[in-house]
Amino acid sequence: MLSLELLQGAVLLTSALVVIALILNVWRMLRGPDITDRILALDTLYINSIALIILLGLYNGSALYFEGALLIAMLGFVSTAALCKYLLRGDIVE
């Protein structure tokens, strides 16, 4: 039982550190000096949210959270690519 309690404590500690990283990402997204820093902060924000959802799935012992993290990963990749294409060309669809 000690290993289960140790694992839950490690997941809680890691979750707290990921929440701090999320807060710093939001700060960079709101205060970034230019648009590329804000896009990078948004990209890192969704990656950290995926990590937080996976940690929540580990803590609760449910595989459903991993599917949600996969959906967020796909949507985050597509949205980042579309936003970068819009900034480079001014249009998403050619």
Rank of each mutant, 00 (worst) to 15 (best):
L88N: 06
G90Y: 00
G76Y: 08
L75D: 07
C84S: 15
R31K: 10
I20C: 02
L88F: 08
L75S: 07
L7W: 00
G68L: 13
Y86P: 01
G76T: 01
L56Q: 07
F66K: 04
L17I: 12
W27M: 15
Y65E: 05
T80M: 13
G32A: 11
L42M: 06
I39W: 02
N60M: 14
L40Y: 02
I23L: 09
L70G: 09
L4N: 05
R28I: 06
Y86Q: 06
V18E: 12
D34K: 03
I39G: 00
D91W: 09
F77L: 10
F66Q: 09
N60C: 10
V18Q: 09
A10D: 08
W27V: 02
L30S: 08
S15D: 06
Y59A: 12
N48S: 07
L42C: 04
L45N: 09
V26A: 07
W27D: 08
L12E: 03
I20K: 02
A10G: 08
C84M: 09
G9P: 00
G61A: 03
L52N: 03
L13N: 10
S49T: 00
S3H: 11
R38Y: 03
A41D: 01
A63N: 13
L45I: 01
E94Q: 05
V78P: 07
L24Y: 01
R28H: 05
L4S: 02
A41M: 12
D34F: 05
S15C: 05
A21Y: 01
V11M: 10
A16L: 12
A51C: 09
L17R: 04
L55R: 09
L30Q: 05
T14K: 11
L13E: 10
D34V: 05
R38T: 00
N25S: 08
Y46K: 01
V78D: 10
S62V: 15
V26C: 12
L52C: 03
S62D: 12
T36L: 11
M74Y: 14
I20P: 00
C84Y: 12
L40D: 09
I50C: 11
L2K: 07
M29D: 05
W27E: 15
L4C: 00
I39E: 07
W27F: 14
S3K: 10
I35N: 10
L56A: 10
L87N: 00
L22M: 15
I53T: 11
A81Y: 14
M74Q: 07
L22R: 01
Y59M: 11
M29L: 14
K85D: 11
L6I: 00
N25H: 06
L64P: 04
E94K: 13
V26K: 04
L83V: 14
R38Q: 06
E67G: 15
E94T: 01
A51Y: 08
Y46Q: 11
D43V: 07
M29T: 01
I50E: 08
L17G: 02
L87C: 05
I53A: 02
I72M: 15
L56H: 04
A69G: 13
A63D: 12
L24N: 04
G61Q: 03
D91I: 06
D37N: 05
F77C: 07
K85S: 10
L24Q: 07
L12M: 03
L75A: 08
D34W: 04
L45G: 00
L24S: 09
M1L: 09
L52Y: 05
N60D: 05
G76K: 04
D43P: 11
A81K: 06
L4P: 00
I72A: 11
Q8T: 02
I35V: 06
K85F: 08
M1S: 03
